[in-house]
């Protein structure tokens, strides 16, 4: 994971990051409702997260044509951007979950 690439990605692909934050927040909310004790909600949350990723890829493809040479001229490939996207999203999702669980334990 590169911080430099993260900055560039946020600048160029802001809508994708906003979308991922929304999906991660919703998924985390489902986790917090019943946590790991409710397999139905738990499965539903994971399903939403996977569908969210599919939409992220769709959004990325929409931007790809107009931005591909911008990244290629910096020696950054499509695969590297996608891998970084997933890693950033997992880190973000983990962060949101952690914060929610910590907040829940205070109540």
């Amino acid at each position: 994971m590169s911080i430099n690439l993260l900055k560039k990605s946020i600048l160029i692909y802001k809508p994708i990051f906003v979308w991922n934050i929304l999906v991660s927040s919703l998924t985390s909310y489902f986790f917090v409702i019943k946590g790991f004790n409710g397999p139905d909600v738990y499965s539903w949350a994971l399903f939403i997260k996977l569908i969210g990723w599919v939409f992220s890829v769709g959004l990325y493809v929409m931007f790809y044509k107009s931005t591909s040479y911008f990244f290629k001229n910096q020696g950054i490939s499509f695969t590297r951007i996608m891998v970084n996207f997933v890693l950033y999203d997992l880190a973000l999702f983990g962060g949101i979950l952690l914060i929610l669980f910590l907040c829940q334990s205070f109540t």
């Binding site: 600048l11 160029i12 107009s66 931005t67 591909s68 040479y69 911008f70 290629k72 001229n73 910096q74 020696g75 490939s77």
Partner: peptide, 15 residues
Amino acid sequence: LSKNISYLPQDNFIP
């Protein structure tokens, strides 16, 4: 990937 080539495409490429 060699980071040794710059390419100006026919269409605008800077976001």
